[in-house]
């Protein structure tokens, strides 16, 4: 496999809320490789979201190091992190987080306008199978469609990495599968390194590797010798 995009070394994150200290990450080591489709599995509070937030430039680590293509992320300030997110990272959220006042096409354009080398919004929406819904507002789209708009928005800038936090969490199985199909297709066609957080074990089957989290640590990493197509998954 290719060079690691991210190298995570002994990463620790401690939240302090008043008197209580919560150890969200307790020394995580992980490499994420170029073009890899990674699934992070684990129960709530196991630290997977915290890791993704740090990798995505949304949060700071307490200790340890994260390098992105050889650059240390933990030293970035607010401004540098914003720029990092803007140029390199695509996000997909559980609740889509689309802008209600913009149509599907405009929601994608929102990101392509500030990106360096974006694809056309229509192109991105075509990749997720929404060519016929370009001018619909989020309120006029189903949950699955909204999530696919969110994927189109995330990939339209041709990001280096795509982070998805429970992308199917709010969807039923059938629509969820369509969303996963779109993610797998993007990973295959564009070679975008993709990390998907879920606590749905079934989804692990579509990944190259499955990282199991427990208690703020990587419990084990499974490598799928053969990946199942998303269409074969149900839950």
């Amino acid at each position: 496999m290719a060079e690691p995009v991210f190298s995570v070394d002994d990463l620790t994150k401690v939240y302090r809320t008043g008197e209580v200290e919560v150890h969200a990450l307790r020394g995580v080591d992980l490499d994420i490789r170029e073009g890899e489709f990674l699934v992070l599995l684990g129960p709530s509070g196991s630290g997977k979201s915290t890791l993704l937030n740090i990798l995505g430039g949304l949060d700071h680590a307490t200790a340890g190091s994260v390098t992105f293509r050889g650059t240390e992320l933990t030293t970035f300030d607010e401004r540098a992190l914003t720029l990092y997110r803007r140029e390199n990272v695509g996000f997909v959220f559980q609740f889509y987080n689309l802008v209600p006042s913009l149509t599907a096409r405009e929601n994608v354009a929102l990101v392509t306008e500030i990106a360096v080398n974006p694809m056309r919004p229509e192109e991105a929406l075509e990749m997720v199978g929404l060519s016929d819904r370009l001018d619909h507002f989020p309120a006029q789209l189903s949950g699955g469609e909204q999530q696919r708009v969110a994927i189109a928005r995330a990939i339209a800038k041709r990001p280096e990495v795509l982070f998805c936090d429970e992308p199917t969490g709010a969807l039923d199985s059938k629509t969820g599968v369509r969303v996963l199909e779109a993610l797998v297709a993007v990973n295959a066609d564009l070679g975008t390194t993709t990390a998907v957080i879920t606590h749905n074990v079934a989804i692990g089957d579509i990944a190259h590797r499955v990282v199991h989290f427990a208690d703020g640590k990587v419990a084990r990493i499974d490598v799928n010798e053969t990946r199942r197509p998303a269409s074969e998954i149900t839950w």
Binding site: T82, L83, V89, F91, F93, N97, V111
Partner: peptide
């Protein structure tokens, strides 16, 4: 909505 945009890489 605004926080989402910040996540997407929009500056303050």
């Amino acid at each position: 909505e605004l926080a989402s945009l910040r996540v997407l890489g929009f500056t303050r």
